[in-house]
Nucleic acid binder design. Structure first.
Lengths: 185, 185
DNA sequence: CCTCTATGGAACATCAATGTTCCACTGGAG
DNA sequence: CTCCAGTGGAACATTGATGTTCCATAGAGG
């Protein structure tokens, strides 16, 4: 065990495996490590070299999701402006998470496992509470339902995007329109 | 192969296995046959006696889903009244599908495999087209998006119901409210 | 009470996925 | 050019799921 001096090659390979894992698992949560290795254009041996265990790989994907979610929360400025607007910004930002969205929504990986260090869930809760307080969110809907609607709409939008039959711009438009109509007071 | 004279016992056992399969697979799509047999309070041997193959079991569940969807379509009177109202009736009716909803939404079983004999998808498409024509559905949203929103909202509602933390009446209320707001013109 | 249906469990063969070890090779850094 | 870090593949042991066979028995229904 030398100190982890990550060379460029290792970083690149690791990223390729991680990306492939996200891509493949989003489509087939029970996919074998062999399938993931193939998708990453890497030998199964190499995959095991980087992630000895299936659990290790999943943990790494989960951690990656945590990071990305954290970035998303910052970019969306969830703590600024009216609650509804914050949620709409969150929609646009989170769409960039791509297949990670699928893994989170289908609970192939779990938000809780990231720890609450990311603070995304917290920030989302806050934005929802703010929106209910400032009158931009429909008070007849519970915080849990509001958040659930947000996630499921996001998942739907990403599904459409991935299918590729609808132009990205249209998908975003319909997503924002639907969420605004559904959640606004 | 005698003529399939299904005795009461056999019908009951078969149903128990099928129900358990739906329940277990909804929670864990990759569940083993042993888990399903346990959930059905039945030996694994017995399960294989009814469904020799895992594929056979899945096919039976799929067929069951087809029947239930067909019934739902009839009960919801999808071909009557304004399009939006038909969709709202469909929401209420489909909620009774329970875990089957999860299996369909997560594509553990596929609608297509039922054949189009059920006619549910067709009826839904028609209702959406009618709603766009009669001005009760938002013309800015594509038929695919309208249908997707319906399904994902249903899935969300069933998730809440299953969790059991929200009273059923409230869940239905929020579901109908959300769908109406999101989809109406 | 008797019979036959339906069942559960033990035992077994098979198979795919997993995780490990070892070795040969390749291409880029020095 | 020379090393060696990084890689791929073959081979192997292990494990869990699967599907099958066989047998003993419980219990519903006559």
């Amino acid at each position: 065990m030398t100190v982890e001096l990550e060379t460029g090659t290792r970083i690149r390979t690791r990223k390729a495996i991680l990306d492939a894992a996200v891509r493949v698992l989003a489509q087939e949560p029970g996919a074998s490590l062999g399938q993931i290795a193939d998708a990453a254009d890497v030998g199964r041996t190499t995959l095991h070299r980087y992630f000895p265990d299936r659990a290790d790989l999943l943990a790494a994907v989960t951690q990656e999701a945590g990071h990305r979610l954290g970035e998303a929360a910052v970019r969306a400025r969830l703590d600024e402006g009216p609650g509804l607007d914050a949620l709409l910004r969150a929609c646009q930002t989170c769409l960039t998470l791509g297949d990670l969205l699928t893994l989170l929504f289908t609970e192939t990986i779990s938000l809780e496992a990231c720890g609450d260090e990311d603070g995304f869930s917290r920030a989302l809760d806050d934005a929802i509470a703010r929106g209910l307080a400032d009158g931009t969110l429909d008070p007849r809907l519970s915080p849990a339902w509001l958040q659930g609607t947000l996630w499921s709409s996001l998942y739907l939008a990403w599904s459409e995007l991935r299918e590729g039959t609808t132009p990205p711009h249209d998908v975003v438009g319909q997503l924002l329109l639907t969420v605004r109509k559904a959640l606004s007071a």
